[in-house]
Design a binder for these strands. Structure first.
Lengths: 346, 346
DNA sequence: GACCGATTGTAGAACGTTCCACGTGGGCGT
DNA sequence: ACGCCCACGTGGAACGTTCTACAATCGGTC
């Protein structure tokens, strides 16, 4: 039965209306509505019934204006990043059962992180979960001084006090990718990096380390890229035109890899026939059978769960150990990698 | 200069703190902060300066608890739909300059529309903008009774009072796609439909009408599909296995088309060599050079702009004419369509 | 010098909720 | 009978704003 607002005027029913209707005080009505103890089963039932009748819904704003706890987690995410969409999905799944609401604030081409965070603060979020923040560390530190902040997927060298970090072991991920390619027989493996994007430094380092460890130091080649398809495409152009073209490429992330794939296919360079491509994230994108990208998988549900968990832990005063949670990545082999066709040059 | 909270205790500075600091009443401080008239230039400057010093930011919840206008537009969107992401981007771009905030509520596999809308209502949004809502019309009508509701991209036959509709002329879009394919020489054109997804009925109808108009009634073929890659892939399997395989396919949307593309490519059916594929939406997805999908473009910025505009118009009491805004689609020809290779059978 | 309107400012009551400090009343041990 | 505790319930003060009065000041006009 759809709730017919049984209050005379067009106004939305308030706690006072509910209390009048049920014949109790507003305080008691409040107790019942939020499931606190201090009401008998009989009245509880009566109030609930009245609430149903008049279609009462508590006003979230008034509620959290009064109670100092808002039970609201602010989440900043990149609207166009499939990886972030997946994370948000996981965040909802963990936060709502735990009794926390999520306030989303999107970062787009025209709407910067600064603006996104400002609106979250104005909404009186209790804690901030930032997905792949690009803001300078100083800004994050400043924020962390005001409220608990969890940075997801970005590595911050000096553990900033009050700032929680949840991330994938990016260096290890890059290493897994290189190991896989080397095992297939590749030697000339290039890396399209993410510039100053979150995680980029670690992936670059992991790549370099792994290459050295395989004795391929002289084949190390890092091409500037970025985290969008366009940037990946640009880097691919550079690689395709370069004289000793690599036989394999490790891209910064899946979006970047998609751009790379695109350029190669259009240039008539078969993948993985002539060149292998590896992405990073294992977002929905990579799983599309059409793209079928070999990629370094991040454990997205786990990252999301940890992020929410860390935020709540901090709010509950449970002190957390290191302030950093590192999740292991795992290689997902799909169709964009294969042994090199040409004999490997020393 | 990053605001150093100059208030003794850890609390966030309040309007009273600001007033004290600036040596004025809270009322006056309020006037200055919201840029209302009634303060001299001198005091205005003094208050603003004080605000900067103590890092004061107005509390959004308290503000809108008091003022009956909340200037908050609730937006329900599908987290995994690139088309929705594009719309949200456009909505931000229109709403924020107009002085409206956006509250986002995502619909995911585990979080239904009902839940998404509930949280928006609890946040005391003034109006709802629903992107591609799947809820039954009765539910939408009920909502529209409570507050202005704008439904984007879904056609509702009987203009529900109080419900604004902003949509693309889906039938016309489907017709454009068919016309394009027929002009290329195709006759056996199949349609993978979207079931009960928003817009699906119109696209199906547009497809049928266009086919009849070209005298291709006997070639009409509608295969059940959906709005995800998986559903598109499934439909493509069916088509590929069917005996007289069509030479062209109009998919319900870009995601669906991507799934179709994938199956064909894996089955060794060249696109557009053996079969042409057309999508719908022109989302980011279609534009990826890697996918390069011919698609029926929806004017996303315009849809977004209209949605916000209609919502605000209703809030301002400006009565709106028909309650329905229909935007013309335009075909975007890319690389997945070409003349059929086999001679067309009558 | 009284009156006026405009301008600048203030006090205090909302808004819808939660929290705190109390009233009840009844059961029960002494 | 008395105290005492407990479960249940109430009144009223917050929370941080905005809004509706109304007060003070000032130059200007008759």
């Amino acid at each position: 039965m759809p709730a017919t607002p049984a209050v005379p005027d067009g106004k939305r029913p308030t706690l006072a209306d509910l209390a009048t209707r049920a014949g109790v005080s507003t305080a008691l009505a409040s107790i019942v509505m939020r499931g606190a103890k201090g009401a008998s089963a009989a009245t509880r039932e009566r109030v609930l019934e009245a609430a149903r009748e008049i279609g009462y819904r508590p006003d979230a704003r008034a509620r959290l204006l009064r109670s100092h706890r808002s039970h609201l987690l602010g989440v900043q995410f990149g609207l166009q990043h499939p990886f972030h969409a997946d994370l948000v999905e996981g965040i909802y799944a963990t936060a709502e059962p735990a009794g926390y609401q999520i306030a989303l604030s999107a970062v787009t081409a025209e709407r910067g992180e600064q603006r996104a965070v400002e609106t979250l603060l104005d909404d009186r979020c209790e804690a901030l979960i930032l997905l792949g923040p690009q803001a300078p560390a100083s800004r994050l530190t400043e924020l962390a001084g005001q409220l608990p902040v969890v940075s997801v997927a970005r590595h911050l060298r000096p553990p900033v006090p009050g700032l929680e970090v949840v991330r994938t072991a990016d260096d290890k991920g890059a290493r897994q990718a290189v190991d896989h390619l080397v095992a297939l027989g590749h030697r000339a493996i290039a890396h399209i990096d993410g510039g100053k994007a979150p995680g980029a430094a670690d992936r670059r380092r992991g790549y370099r380390t792994a290459m050295s460890r395989h004795g391929l130091t002289e084949h190390i080649r890092v091409v500037p890229g970025g985290l969008t398809e366009a940037e990946g495409a640009e880097a691919a152009q550079v690689l395709a035109a370069s004289h000793p073209c690599p036989t394999a490429v490790l891209a910064f992330n899946d979006r970047c890899a998609t751009g790379v794939l695109d350029v190669f296919l259009r240039s008539g360079i078969p993948v993985p026939g002539a060149i292998s491509v590896v992405g990073f994230d294992d977002s929905h994108l990579a799983r599309l059978a059409h793209i079928d990208l070999t990629t370094v998988g991040q454990d997205i549900p786990r990252l999301a769960h940890l992020a929410v968990d860390r935020a709540i832990a901090r709010l509950d005063g449970r002190d957390t150990g290191t302030g950093e949670q590192v999740v292991a990545p795992h290689l997902v082999v799909r169709g964009t990698t294969a042994p090199p066709s040409t004999a490997p040059a020393t």
